[in-house]
């Protein structure tokens, strides 16, 4: 049995320790916002927070997260910060096919909570682990910088 916190709830799983966190989240807890784009840690579509750090859940064996705090996109969906990101992505036109977007939003939230006023270069660096094939990134960069402005004061609190 492996015990961890998932979106604020204590959970237990009997999945084998080598099972990927990604599969456990998606299959056992039916949280579909965490996507699989590569399964090899190269695209960021499966981004989650593990103890507040942005991680690719496809690379994490469930056995390694005993006691950890896992947050998926579903876990931040009700927050003020998410609302700002949601509006900013919409306003800036950062969403196309959408498959990269939950991961991008997680990466954006992670970046802004560490650096509430990032420069363009810092935003590009911050989302560089997240692949997007549709947008060419610029409108996503705009979305993040808009979110930084709109949510001024919100990001540091976390």
């Amino acid at each position: 049995m492996i015990t961890f916190t998932l979106n604020g709830r204590k959970v237990e799983t009997d999945a084998p320790p080598t099972a990927r966190l990604l599969d456990v989240i998606r299959d056992d807890y039916e949280l579909i916002g965490t996507k699989e784009g590569c399964g090899e840690g190269e695209c960021g579509a499966c981004s989650v927070f593990v103890n507040n750090l942005l991680q690719n859940s496809c690379l994490i064996p469930i056995g390694s997260i005993e006691g950890a705090e896992i947050i998926t996109i579903e876990g931040i969906m009700e927050s003020e910060q998410f609302k700002i990101l949601d509006e900013s992505y919409s306003h800036a036109g950062g969403v196309q096919c959408g498959y990269c977007i939950p991961g991008m939003v997680m990466a954006s939230a992670a970046l802004l909570s560490q650096n509430p006023h990032p420069s363009e270069a810092e935003i590009r660096e911050g989302i560089s682990g997240n692949l997007c094939r549709c947008t060419g990134y610029n409108m996503i960069v705009d979305a993040v910088s808009l979110a930084a402005k709109k949510g001024d004061g919100l990001w540091q609190k976390k």
């Binding site: 998606r26 579909i32 916002g33 965490t34 996507k35 699989e36 996109i73 579903e74 969906m77 990101l85 949601d86 992505y89 919409s90 036109g93 969403v95 096919c97 959408g98 498959y99 977007i101 939950p102 939003v105």
Partner: peptide
Amino acid sequence: MPRKDHKGKVSGQLPYISDV
């Protein structure tokens, strides 16, 4: 004016085929 499919995509709750 948001894209028609914005909400489901930004939250990840729109089911792609592998989510079904």
